[in-house]
Amino acid sequence: MRKIDVLGIGIGVFVAGGLVYVVLQVVGLDNLEAGIWSQLLLVAGLIGWIATYITRAASNKMTYHQQREAYEQAYFKKRIDELTPEQLANIQAEIDQEKSQTK
């Protein structure tokens, strides 16, 4: 995420909180109640966002993890494509030998 995106989101949340405050006042709540409810909604939204962040981080669904996995797969595919059939056969024989030794 770029710095400008973070600034935009921050300003958007600030403006949304102000709009909620004004709407609650128009609905009929006094200044104190409208402030409490708008803060409650902001905190609830923040807790929800943190919950989704923790879930994505715990399950490795973050953009960084996905990009790194895609890079590693492309790197290994390129390396395998560069091998000759004889080298591939040798590697396969080594893998088979290791599998038979571990059983």
Rank of each mutant, 00 (worst) to 15 (best):
M1Y: 08
R2P: 05
R2Q: 10
K3F: 12
K3S: 15
I4F: 15
I4S: 12
D5G: 00
V6T: 06
L7W: 14
L7S: 06
G8F: 13
I9D: 10
I11D: 11
V13S: 04
F14L: 09
A16P: 04
G17T: 15
G17C: 14
G17H: 15
G18F: 15
G18L: 12
L19T: 13
L19Y: 15
L19D: 00
V20H: 02
Y21C: 01
V22N: 04
V23C: 05
L24D: 00
Q25S: 12
V26T: 12
V27K: 14
G28L: 07
G28N: 08
L29C: 02
D30A: 09
D30F: 08
E33L: 09
E33A: 05
A34Y: 11
A34R: 11
G35A: 07
I36Q: 00
I36C: 00
I36D: 02
W37E: 02
L40D: 05
L41M: 11
L42Y: 15
L42P: 00
V43M: 04
A44G: 06
G45K: 03
G45Y: 07
L46C: 01
I47S: 00
G48P: 09
G48H: 04
G48I: 08
G48C: 01
I50N: 01
T52P: 01
Y53C: 05
T55P: 05
R56W: 11
A58D: 03
S59F: 13
N60T: 04
M62H: 06
M62W: 07
T63E: 15
Y64T: 01
H65F: 11
Q66K: 03
Q67F: 12
E69V: 06
A70V: 00
A70L: 12
Y71C: 06
E72T: 02
E72N: 10
Q73D: 13
A74N: 14
Y75A: 02
Y75N: 05
F76S: 10
K77H: 12
K77F: 15
K77G: 12
K78Q: 05
R79T: 09
D81L: 06
E82C: 02
T84D: 07
P85W: 03
P85Y: 00
P85T: 04
E86M: 11
E86I: 09
Q87F: 13
L88H: 02
L88K: 00
A89K: 07
N90M: 15
N90I: 13
I91W: 15
I91M: 15
Q92C: 06
Q92N: 08
E94L: 11
D96M: 07
Q97P: 06
Q97S: 10
Q97E: 15
Q97R: 03
E98A: 01
E98S: 10
E98W: 02
E98M: 07
S100F: 07
Q101A: 08
Q101W: 06
Q101H: 05
Q101G: 00
K103P: 08
K103I: 06
K103E: 13
